[in-house]
């Protein structure tokens, strides 16, 4: 499955992804209308700012293979979709016990305050590329399969190496 892969070294903390996420999950899907909506649209991706390093890191659901949140959910509201391998949440089953939030190692299960249920990344169903990835101006977010993601990094590393070599440096 494709996932939202993160390249923290490229993130400049502009929070475009957070806004795009909230808008995508709003009723109107428009920034201006979304602001006044009720229930208020919730983002599912979080930019964490680390003051001592002046760095920002995007944190979002990893759709873990052996996802702790699906294991502990007492009602089956959180589950794994067999075909897409996504970790999905069904709000109608959620009882707001927040056990999922206690076991999530990334802290990316949020709360929809009007409905009092959990909200989490659904990888934007109906979209080719999730809204956060599309909105990211520096490609700090990449929508790719894990194996392809390594490939992208490998290609870049090769390019860097090649830059260090000058014509004629062959021995």
């Amino acid at each position: 499955m494709k996932e939202v892969m993160v390249r923290p070294e490229r993130c400049m903390g502009c929070r475009s992804c957070e806004i795009a996420c909230a808008v995508e999950h709003s009723e109107s899907k428009s920034l201006f209308a979304a602001v006044g909506e009720s229930p208020s649209p919730r983002k599912r991706i979080y930019i964490e700012y680390i003051p001592e390093h002046a760095a920002s890191v995007p944190v979002t659901c990893r759709h873990c293979e052996d996802a702790p949140c699906t294991t502990v959910c007492p009602t089956g509201a959180l589950s794994r979709e067999e075909i897409s391998r996504k970790v999905v949440h069904s709000p109608e089953l959620c009882i707001g016990c927040w056990t999922c939030s206690m076991v999530c190692n990334y802290g990316v299960i949020g709360r929809q305050k009007e409905a009092r249920v959990a909200v989490k990344c659904d990888l934007c169903p109906g979209r080719e590329v999730p809204a956060c990835v599309e909105a990211c101006p520096t490609n700090a977010l990449v929508y790719a399969e894990v194996k392809d993601f390594s490939g992208i990094k490998r290609a870049e590393a090769a390019l860097k190496l090649a830059r260090g070599m000058k014509p004629g440096s062959a021995l």
Binding site: P8, Y46, E48, I50, V59, N105, Y106, G107, G110, R111
Partner: peptide, 12 residues
């Protein structure tokens, strides 16, 4: 709602 904050920050 504030449960994930601390964990997210540590993860980041």
């Amino acid at each position: 709602g504030s449960l994930g904050e601390n964990i997210r920050q540590r993860r980041a």
